[in-house]
């Protein structure tokens, strides 16, 4: 009887992952079971990630007023602290240096994920690990902050800047796709027309480009993106369609 009951609970993983249990009492009961049943918890994680794909497929452009309303509310809304006595599993790989606080755990997760995505030959793996560590270091820098701007072509660019590290990490969302003869090139634009190339954007996955690291930031630099012929240009040949001053 007990075994039957357990089995009964286990098969609720799908229903629970879709938030389709009927009552709070049912949810509480199943969550107690999850705490004891590791394989159930693992299955729920996978099924929840699956549900997220269903959510992504339902994406719709939100009403134009939403962004302003949310950002205005954010500036006057106080944040909650992390829950105390929070047991966090150790990072799965040993090569990422231990970093402080919540950032470290997340940085590790990103590095692991990027490692998986970029993994190829051992040589590539070593290179991508070095790159991921560098990205994690920028994101975990105490002075790291994010600057986001819409572009005149649509979509947006985000730059995580650490002035102390003199580095930045660039991602984009929703830039218009380019023909294969063109690329998006990144630039650091300093005083006196001191314009330095800062890399080429990788091809987007689902409209997003994976984090790209650029180093050698100088005080007063502005970040810009242009469209260039495939392979990139030593100096921009078109006007930047997004400019983000990286003050500090």
């Amino acid at each position: 009887m007990v075994r039957l009951l357990r089995h009964d609970l286990h098969t609720l993983t799908g229903v629970y992952a879709l938030d389709a249990l009927d009552t709070q009492a049912e949810r509480d009961r199943f969550e107690r079971h999850l705490n004891r049943c590791q394989s159930c918890a693992s299955e729920v994680r996978g099924l929840r990630e699956t549900a997220t794909r269903l959510a992504m497929a339902a994406a719709r452009t939100p009403p134009p007023g939403l962004r302003h309303a949310v950002m205005a509310a954010v500036t006057r809304t106080r944040q909650l602290p992390a829950i105390a006595h929070h047991a966090r599993p150790e990072p799965r790989l040993g090569w990422v240096p231990r970093l402080a606080g919540a950032v470290a755990a997340v940085a590790t997760a990103v590095a692991v994920a990027l490692g998986v995505v970029l993994a190829g030959t051992q040589h590539q793996l070593d290179r991508s690990r070095a790159q991921n560590q560098a990205i994690a270091a920028v994101l975990a820098a105490p002075d790291a902050h994010v600057l986001t701007s819409k572009t005149s072509k649509g979509g947006s660019a985000s730059v995580v800047v650490s002035a102390a590290e003199r580095k930045m990490v660039v991602t984009t969302a929703g830039l218009p796709p380019l023909p294969s003869s063109k690329v998006y090139e990144l630039w650091l634009i300093g005083a006196h027309k001191n314009i330095r190339p800062a890399g080429l954007l990788p091809l987007p996955v689902n409209g997003h480009t994976s984090p790209l690291l650029a180093s050698g930031l100088l005080h007063g630099d502005t970040f810009g993106v242009t469209v260039e012929p495939a392979g990139g240009s030593p100096q921009p040949t078109t006007r930047p369609f997004v400019l983000i001053p990286l003050t500090g």
Binding site: A59, R60, L66, S158
Partner: peptide
């Protein structure tokens, strides 16, 4: 807040949809 704005750009479509 800049990080939040970036998150908004990535996820407001799926959230609203």
């Amino acid at each position: 807040e800049g990080a939040f704005e970036s998150l908004y750009d990535h996820l407001s479509g799926p959230v609203y949809g």
